[in-house]
């Protein structure tokens, strides 16, 4: 059974992938909820464009998304140089950059799941909360948010799973630096490029399948539990 044990190098990649995916999911959640709200309920000029931009990473070749990130968030890019200069945040060739690329790629999945659940909310319940004295912010916190929780959970898990597997945009944007940006898929790719790397590639493939499967099952289970709890009449 020795061949299943991960080498330190592989462990590093798995841990890095988990770290990247967690940050990507957590950091994009507030934006995901806001954008989903705007798309589900907002009436404003440019809504179609916003919708298009959000969904673009889903249809663009990942390498194009990675290249655009490099252009915008690279050291000399307009956003990248601004952030580095004023806030000290650097994305280029850092693990945070891998998180940014994963977040962008997972964002459409997250927004979609949350948006669908917002559209399913019975707005008459929100009106009822208003008559009971809840201001719009409180209505959102005490009624809307709990009702869309299943959608938020499944959106987060989808984004997490997507981030775990993100490869094209990440490698284009932040390269494949062991210990810094070499995530699980990037290491599998590296293994396939060197002689004798097969065993490592197999082991990481198993890890990858296990993590994705667990995420999907957890998402299904949590969503079911949440919707059973609220049991719409």
């Amino acid at each position: 059974m020795d061949w299943v044990a991960l080498t330190p190098e592989e462990w590093t990649a798995v841990r890095l992938s988990l770290k990247v995916a967690s940050l990507a999911t957590a950091a994009s959640l507030p934006f995901g909820i806001l954008v989903a709200l705007a798309l589900a309920r907002g009436r404003f000029w440019g809504k179609t464009i916003l919708n298009g931009v959000v969904h673009l990473p889903l249809v663009l070749p990942p390498v194009v998304t990675g290249f655009l990130l490099l252009v915008l968030f690279g050291r000399n890019g307009p956003i990248g140089s601004f952030l580095a200069e004023h806030l000290g945040i650097v994305f280029a060739f850092r693990w945070t950059g891998a998180a940014l690329a994963s977040a962008v790629m997972g964002f459409p999945l997250m927004v979609r799941a949350i948006r669908l659940s917002i559209e399913a909310v019975d707005r008459r319940l929100e009106a009822a909360a208003g008559t009971l004295g809840a201001s719009p912010v409180w209505v959102f916190v005490t009624v809307t948010l709990p009702l869309i929780l299943p959608g938020i959970i499944s959106g987060m898990i989808l984004a997490f799973a997507k981030a775990m597997g993100e490869f094209g945009a990440t490698i284009t944007f932040v390269s494949n630096i062991p210990g810094e940006t070499q995530t699980l898929p990037a290491l599998i790719y590296t293994f396939t490029q060197v002689p004798g790397g097969d065993a490592g590639a197999y082991r990481l493939t198993l890890v990858s399948v296990a993590v994705s499967m667990a995420a999907l099952i957890a998402s299904e289970w949590l969503a079911q539990r949440a919707s059973r709890r609220i049991e719409v009449e």
């Binding site: 019975d122 008459r124 319940l125 009106a127 909360a129 208003g130 009971l132 004295g133 719009p136 005490t142």
Partner: peptide, 29 residues
């Protein structure tokens, strides 16, 4: 605005909050 009027509105279809218990529904206001 509605939430500052202090009215109690009983709707035709009840409109209870499905994610709260009866007790939590009652004390919501």
């Amino acid at each position: 605005p509605t939430h500052r009027r202090r009215i109690g509105y009983v709707f035709q279809e009840g409109r209870l909050f499905p994610h709260l218990t009866v007790r939590q529904n009652l004390v919501y206001g």
